[in-house]
């Protein structure tokens, strides 16, 4: 009996109670049954099987065409480009959005205003329009030059060597995304207790250190789930790059085949399959990120409650 009261006090002198912890016979509990759950599972299984059968045996789905194209080189190249566009665009959008958040929280009104305008513009115009604009960049500005304003030109390069369709697609997607991410990140930082900044200041941390060591790691926990959402959204948003026009992504590839073969359904299924595969991979990545940044913060949703 003495072990019980000692075990309650979670302190530095645990050793005695820890040693006896193994010896305590644990309660043997017969788990409660939930017949409603079993019925629900059966109903769902039956419905799923029927739906599966209806899809699998329906000749209109042309599964033989699906099988022919699912691993075709054009499709695989499309998968590669879609993945690349997603990763690179997010890879640019995230640091860009972080910079914009720091600007938004800056004491300098010019920086704050510039960040506000960026978000206002890129959130306020359609991505499709932005992508078309970036596609036309080389036409609108044939050369990019570094010069003294109203003075002599220092270096000049032809735009079409820099703003290629792939670059235009990436710029368009990432700039647009950065505006949305800025708002998500800002909410994440706002959720941090101001006492954290004071504690960091009290040990003499500089502003950049406070951002990188204290604020960003804590905001991550809040930021990651919606950012994962945005990444999956981005994956599908890459199909809009035909506005540039950029013609190597997954949707463009499967649409082109469908137009050639007059069989849109199996190729839509091919595209859908690959988007699902990539999304699943991204979700696994998100799981590990959430686990890493959730350290020390306990489970977000209580794992204890069973009901």
């Amino acid at each position: 009996m003495a072990e019980h009261s000692a075990g309650l006090k979670m302190g530095s002198r645990l050793s005695a109670s820890e040693a006896t912890a193994h010896a305590i016979p644990r309660n043997h509990v017969v788990p409660r049954r939930y017949p409603g759950r079993v019925i629900a599972v059966i109903v769902i299984l039956i419905l799923a099987l029927q739906a599966g059968k209806a899809v699998a045996t329906n000749p209109n789905f042309h599964w033989e065409v699906y099988a022919e194209y699912i691993f075709s080189p054009t499709v695989l190249r499309g998968v590669g480009w879609t993945l690349l566009l997603t990763v690179v665009a997010m890879g640019i959008a995230i640091p860009l959005a972080l910079t914009l958040v720091v600007m938004r929280e800056s004491i300098n009104p010019i920086l704050r205003g510039a960040a506000w305008c960026w978000v206002w513009f890129f959130r306020g115009t359609p991505v499709y329009t932005q992508l078309a604009f970036w596609g036309l960049f080389a036409v609108l500005f044939p050369s990019i030059s570094v010069s003294i304003p109203f003075g002599p030109e220092l270096v000049s390069i032809e735009s079409r060597w820099i703003v290629t369709p792939a670059v235009a697609a990436i710029i368009g997607l990432s700039f647009n995304e950065s505006a949305y991410l800025t708002e998500i990140f800002r909410a994440g930082f706002r959720a941090i207790d101001p006492g954290q900044i004071e504690a960091a200041q009290a040990i003499g941390m500089s502003r950049p250190k406070i951002w990188t060591r204290i604020l960003i790691p804590q905001a991550m926990r809040i930021i990651i789930p919606p950012t994962g959402n945005e990444t999956i959204g981005m994956l599908k948003m890459t199909s809009l790059v035909l506005a540039v026009p950029f013609t190597l992504d997954l949707t463009f590839a499967t649409n082109a085949i469908a137009n050639r073969t007059y069989l849109p359904v199996p190729l839509l299924l091919v595209a859908a399959t690959w988007y699902l595969v990539i999304t699943s991979a991204l979700m696994v990545g998100q799981y590990y990120l959430e686990r890493y940044y959730g350290r020390g913060q306990g489970p977000v949703l209580g794992k204890g409650g069973q009901h």
Partner: peptide
Amino acid sequence: PRQIAQQRRRTGMVFQRFNLFPHMT
């Protein structure tokens, strides 16, 4: 700001609400 941060190092502060960094042991 850097000089102020440097001066702040010379005082240690303990807060009512502890303000430990929750993501660190």
